[in-house]
Design a protein around this nucleic acid. Sequence first.
DNA 1: GATATTTGCGCAAACGTTTTCGCAAATGGA
DNA 2: TCCATTTGCGAAAACGTTTGCGCAAATATC
Lengths: 334, 334
Amino acid sequence: MDNNKISIKDIAKFSGYSVSTVSRVLNHTGRFTEATRKKIIKIANQHHYRQNVIAQGMRSGSLSIIGVLVPDITNSYYASIVKKCEQYFFQYGYLTIVCNTNRDPALEQKYIAQLGNHFVDGLIIISTQLTLDNKNLNTFIPTVFIDRFPKSTRNSVLISSDNYTGAVLATQHLLDNNVYPVMVTTKDNNFSSNQKRLRGFKDTARKSGIVSPQIITLSNNSDNLENATKNLRQLLNNIIKKHERSGIFAVNDNLGVYIHQIAMKLNIKVPDTLRIIGFDDSTHAKEAQLSTIKQDINKLALLSCQNLISLLKKELISNRKIIIPVSLIKRQTT
Amino acid sequence: MDNNKISIKDIAKFSGYSVSTVSRVLNHTGRFTEATRKKIIKIANQHHYRQNVIAQGMRSGSLSIIGVLVPDITNSYYASIVKKCEQYFFQYGYLTIVCNTNRDPALEQKYIAQLGNHFVDGLIIISTQLTLDNKNLNTFIPTVFIDRFPKSTRNSVLISSDNYTGAVLATQHLLDNNVYPVMVTTKDNNFSSNQKRLRGFKDTARKSGIVSPQIITLSNNSDNLENATKNLRQLLNNIIKKHERSGIFAVNDNLGVYIHQIAMKLNIKVPDTLRIIGFDDSTHAKEAQLSTIKQDINKLALLSCQNLISLLKKELISNRKIIIPVSLIKRQTT
DNA sequence: GATATTTGCGCAAACGTTTTCGCAAATGGA
DNA sequence: TCCATTTGCGAAAACGTTTGCGCAAATATC
């Protein structure tokens, strides 16, 4: 029985034609008679011939694969991006290798090193490192960085949402609600996106006359919120004691939803006593009816894909740092 | 400047050694002096040599890639499985190509055909087709099918949760609550998993004396729940009018959570007037405090990976159809 | 010091394609 | 009928590895 090891050579042998003719027929290039085409195709089908992309890649120098690195595909934000990318690239003839870096810089490096061995034509990276050690990126693989950028890059495009303006919108929204704004964030604030959100909050609060805007940094990262619960209860109680009308700007929706839940457990009325706004517009936020700043994930993903394709085609790229507008979504928590 | 096109040949030239010696040094195989090793490694590093997996694949016949097909990576159930698989396979030296089949059988076929061209060593498939047309699977790629199985398979392992028993547990739980059980499902019920859940419900309800158990099939699939809202409102009202204490067994958590939300909007008290139980134990269910049947996703994914690796190693596999136990999770909706 | 063994390394083939070049046969134009 | 062009197809090289084989030099054995 012929299992899957039928090559173009075998077909050449069986059909009596040469390897080159078989190749031309199979690729519909060059010259051949309709008669030979039929014979060759027939034999190829009979033997369940499958083209060997490895050998093709050997010749062309490419496997037509794109690598996508995300911290954790279980997170709906990353999942959405990965899905869009995968579907977009498939239309352009690329398959997508997905890597969960698990917020581990060393693992991220491993993946990049591995993918750098001529596996992929291009990369989409949502990095977990503040300064991406680009030792492994010096193979100059065309790369689109989303949200978090390495210090210096070559052959790449940087894309992110407008985190600063988003924070301004959120803070201003709280101020417009006539509440005292407090920002709650996590230790992950070495991410450039989080830093921009902090800055937007501070600037806006100061502009409204608050001299030293209050920022609460929880000790744990956003994955491990449970551990921060005790702190959070105290903090929430403190906040509502201090200002009779206060509003929390949570650095992301996960945190915002979590704060909302704790407030409910503490019988703190939202939005009457406490207002809450998040950032991201995740599915969680939708379900919890959390006000938030909406990132245009579709646009983000689409632009990432388009720019990567442009990089691959070596087209001229005018704007190598793209900022995508965000918008305020008012829901029940403000 | 040497970009990323440095081959083992170039290093041979630069170092004065032969290609074979360079290869042996780089792979730490065969014989060579420490001195030559140092020289070669140095030159390789200087020129940023990266091994070419395509050429290696050419020789070995494999790229060490696994393909994972899921309907939609945005769904947390599939995302969890993909993540586990990807991480497991990476430890074993495999990268993972992820494909969103988008519940489109034709697209699924396209992916399988593409991956069949010697791209992958093995496949994990959560199919969207009732009967998987295995024309493209006759390349005998080792495959693990999760949840939904094709009619006939070769070189594959089938794995799913115990959907039947899960449905029995859910239904019995409602009966134990002394409520009249109604099952709500969607048009996706051509999936073998859903069919098993239906059967489990019917059997259990009948056993309790209900002659013709009530099953409501919503017209739209689980992605498009909004369109079913109007129906659902009427249905819920009908149900609670008919039986003073009723309980809904939703075929999956998405649907269960959705029903819960609508019930709240209709001011139907849950669990007092209406009890609800879902299936899957998704994150949504946790957040909504929905009672549910918990699938052991970790075990499911782990066994899938282990069995695929076994298939790849051509190990003897005793059990080619694996059923994973489920358990009842009682929360606030029952 | 002669023989046997080990060591270090090079040669060349092979993996499955695609593509350039060239040649013979077929076709066209007068 | 003769020459020019077109057509169909084959030979061979190339892509970057790995690896079996062999050979000379180095080392060990007595």
